[in-house]
Design a protein around this nucleic acid. Structure first.
Length: 325
DNA sequence: TCAGTCAAACCGTGCT
DNA sequence: AGCACGGTTTGACTGA
């Protein structure tokens, strides 16, 4: 029905019928028109300002209360009373008692069989269609509330899972850091054990450096030298295990000494800007591996012996030597 | 029967 | 107290 809808239709006849009942309700006998005398509902709505209440009247004047919520019989005379029922039908709410009764019935069974509908309508003094519509609306609104409940429940579950996930993420990071620290410690221990061997190798290197040319360009970025050294290692060996401490060229945690002694005509020495190794990879490598091996200023880490790391020619004051032609 | 919608009834709030 | 206003509830209807 469009705007300005008048609530009539099939219902208007019921209202008119009820009006007639009101008109003739000066007799107690008419109670049975609205509520079955055998029904418990008559007692269920004592004092209610409803259609049901109408039948609960003491038989004289509907207990002095209006039949409909918006109509006050005491404030309106008989003329207004008649005029009220001549007005186009307005929507009227069910009384609290009627709704309670319907709610209880709905809790028992939210579907409405025809017999039950008729019985309820009889008990409540409503049209069967009104009862059907009430159940229909009730089911729809129950579904809405149920969906809202489900949503809230799922949201709580989601939030809990999210918190757990973030907690696990932090734990993972913490464990990774721990692994890195332990690896560093492992390298330092290995380094101390190899000190004697590396001293011997360095002495050998010095005896071969008579034809070397000092190149100081790497003084600015000693880490790059380390990077070159390590890349050289992976290039020269199919075994790219950088931390292979069993390798004969592994010296003090460095693979460097022998590589740095490589002849200057080697095309591998100046591959700092090699395109096959991105800056990111370089950085990651430096972060993940090199600092662990060479960053001895790391707080909490013991400083290496003075005669250990310098053997790799990485100290700033030490030139890097290459083979010359 | 259900989803969507309308509109009356109701309720809370702020203003005069 | 009375009024206006906005938001919510709820009875009723329509079309699928």
């Amino acid at each position: 029905m469009e705007g300005g809808r008048v609530y009539g239709g099939s219902n208007i006849s019921s209202i008119l019928l009820q009006n007639q009942r009101i008109s003739s309700s000066s007799s107690v006998d008419n109670n049975n028109l609205l509520i079955s005398s055998s029904s418990s509902s008559a007692a269920a709505f004592p004092g209610s300002r409803s259609m049901v209440n109408f039948s609960d009247a003491n038989g004289i004047n509907f207990s002095g209360k209006s039949f409909f919520r918006s109509f006050d019989y005491e404030e309106n005379g008989d003329e207004d009373f008649d005029e009220y029922f001549r007005q186009p039908e307005k929507k009227r709410r069910l009384t609290v008692d009627q709704v309670e009764f319907l709610e209880r019935s709905f809790e028992v069974e939210n579907k409405l069989e025809p017999e039950r509908k008729v019985q309820l309508a009889k008990d409540l003094g409503l049209q069967p269609r009104q009862v059907a519509i009430w159940f229909q609306n009730r089911r729809a609104r129950w579904k809405t509330k149920s969906l809202e409940k489900d949503y809230d429940s799922l949201k709580v579950s989601y939030d809990t899972l999210k918190i757990n996930y973030e907690s696990l993420l932090k734990e993972t990071e913490k464990l990774k850091t721990e692994v890195l620290t332990l690896t560093n410690q492992h390298f330092l221990n290995e380094k101390e054990m190899d000190n004697s061997e590396s001293l011997h190798l360095i002495e050998q290197c010095h005896t071969r450096t008579q034809n070397f040319i000092p190149i100081e360009v790497f003084r600015e970025r000693p880490l790059d030298v380390v990077s070159v050294v390590c890349k050289q290692e992976s290039f020269n060996s199919s075994n790219s295990d950088v931390v292979d401490t069993d390798s004969p060229r592994y010296i003090n945690g460095l693979h460097s000494a022998a590589l740095l002694m490589e002849p200057a005509n080697s095309s591998h020495v100046f591959e700092v800007d090699q395109p096959d190794l991105s800056q990111d990879e370089d950085e990651n490598f430096s972060k993940n591996m090199l600092p662990a091996m060479y960053n001895f200023s790391n707080p909490g880490e013991p400083n290496p012996p003075a005669n250990s790391c310098n053997y790799g020619f990485l100290a700033e004051d030490q030139p890097v030597w290459f083979w010359s032609h």
